[in-house]
Simulated scan of single mutants.
Amino acid sequence: MHAFPPPPALAPASRQCYAPSHSLDRHCHYTAYATVILGGSYLEAGDEGRHTVQAGDALVHRAFESHLDFFSARGADVLIIPMPFAARLPVRGRVRDVDALARMAERSPACAWTAFAEAFEADGSGHDDWPDLLARKLREQPDTHLGEWAEATGLRAESISRGFCRAYGISPKAYRAQVRARAAWEAICGSSLALGRLATELGFADQAHMTRAVKSLTGHRPQAWRMAADA
């Protein structure tokens, strides 16, 4: 069972080093955080697309996002900065002086989020191959018919499934289900719309379907998250 409700105070920033050519299978983080790359580089593929990042780049991860990582031959040195659940920044950005941010985080780890938010500069770049176009389509239009999308792009449906899984570590259908579940969780916490109405608007078969999806993702039913948001 995941921690509930979210802790009111942020954890301190921390530093993590990854070995050359190391990889991490697709995994879910239950808290929101930002990653600032201090050195090295890697490819991340997750719920918000694929990004190749290097020193000075930053990636923002909202709660309950999933991703996989492939580290380069140089490995990577990263600064992990916990962020508030409700914070909203673009997925990718830059920090001009990562060394100064790292020094500040070491002196005062609890203040790292504020310093990062002030230094963050949005950068909309990312991968744009067909798996990324499909991922974006599934995020923006979850009801997209995969067979029709394959036909429109001149690809075979089975090739799409294999290629997408290689890129994102998950099938297109499973990716869509996870993205939809996270969208439901965010809507439940951020709006007062009736749960049944939300389920319909987000494309679930019914409220029970949405409840199962949100509980599978977060460990808690929509009603519990709604009560926590209203508290």
Rank of each mutant, 00 (worst) to 15 (best):
7 P>N: 07
8 P>C: 06
8 P>H: 07
10 L>D: 04
10 L>S: 04
11 A>T: 10
12 P>L: 04
12 P>R: 07
13 A>S: 08
13 A>E: 02
14 S>Y: 06
16 Q>G: 00
16 Q>I: 14
17 C>D: 12
18 Y>L: 07
18 Y>C: 11
18 Y>Q: 06
21 S>W: 04
21 S>N: 14
21 S>T: 11
21 S>Y: 04
21 S>L: 15
24 L>Y: 00
26 R>Y: 00
26 R>T: 12
26 R>S: 10
27 H>T: 11
28 C>P: 00
29 H>R: 12
29 H>F: 11
30 Y>R: 13
31 T>P: 00
32 A>S: 15
35 T>K: 11
35 T>I: 15
36 V>C: 05
37 I>E: 02
37 I>S: 00
39 G>A: 15
39 G>S: 15
41 S>T: 02
41 S>F: 01
41 S>Y: 00
43 L>M: 06
43 L>I: 06
44 E>A: 13
44 E>W: 00
45 A>C: 14
47 D>M: 14
47 D>R: 03
47 D>V: 03
48 E>D: 12
48 E>I: 00
49 G>E: 03
50 R>F: 02
50 R>G: 08
51 H>W: 10
54 Q>R: 14
55 A>T: 12
55 A>D: 04
55 A>V: 02
56 G>R: 02
57 D>T: 05
57 D>C: 13
58 A>G: 05
60 V>W: 11
61 H>A: 10
61 H>W: 14
63 A>I: 05
64 F>K: 02
64 F>E: 06
64 F>N: 04
65 E>I: 00
66 S>G: 14
66 S>A: 15
66 S>M: 09
67 H>T: 04
68 L>T: 04
69 D>H: 05
69 D>W: 01
70 F>P: 00
70 F>W: 12
70 F>I: 01
71 F>C: 08
72 S>W: 08
72 S>I: 07
74 R>E: 15
75 G>C: 09
76 A>W: 06
77 D>H: 11
77 D>A: 08
78 V>K: 00
78 V>W: 00
80 I>Y: 07
81 I>M: 11
82 P>W: 05
84 P>G: 12
84 P>K: 07
85 F>P: 01
85 F>V: 12
86 A>K: 05
87 A>T: 07
87 A>C: 06
89 L>D: 02
89 L>M: 09
90 P>G: 04
91 V>W: 03
92 R>L: 12
93 G>F: 08
95 V>D: 01
95 V>Q: 01
95 V>H: 03
96 R>T: 13
96 R>F: 09
96 R>H: 11
96 R>I: 03
97 D>P: 09
100 A>K: 05
101 L>A: 07
101 L>F: 09
102 A>G: 02
103 R>T: 11
104 M>D: 12
105 A>M: 08
105 A>E: 04
107 R>E: 14
108 S>K: 10
108 S>G: 01
108 S>E: 14
108 S>Y: 02
109 P>M: 09
110 A>R: 10
110 A>Q: 14
112 A>K: 01
112 A>D: 09
114 T>P: 00
115 A>S: 13
116 F>Q: 02
118 E>Q: 14
120 F>R: 09
120 F>S: 07
121 E>V: 15
121 E>Y: 01
121 E>R: 15
123 D>V: 07
123 D>G: 02
123 D>R: 06
123 D>Q: 05
124 G>P: 09
124 G>C: 03
127 H>F: 11
128 D>Y: 08
129 D>L: 13
130 W>L: 15
134 L>I: 06
135 A>K: 01
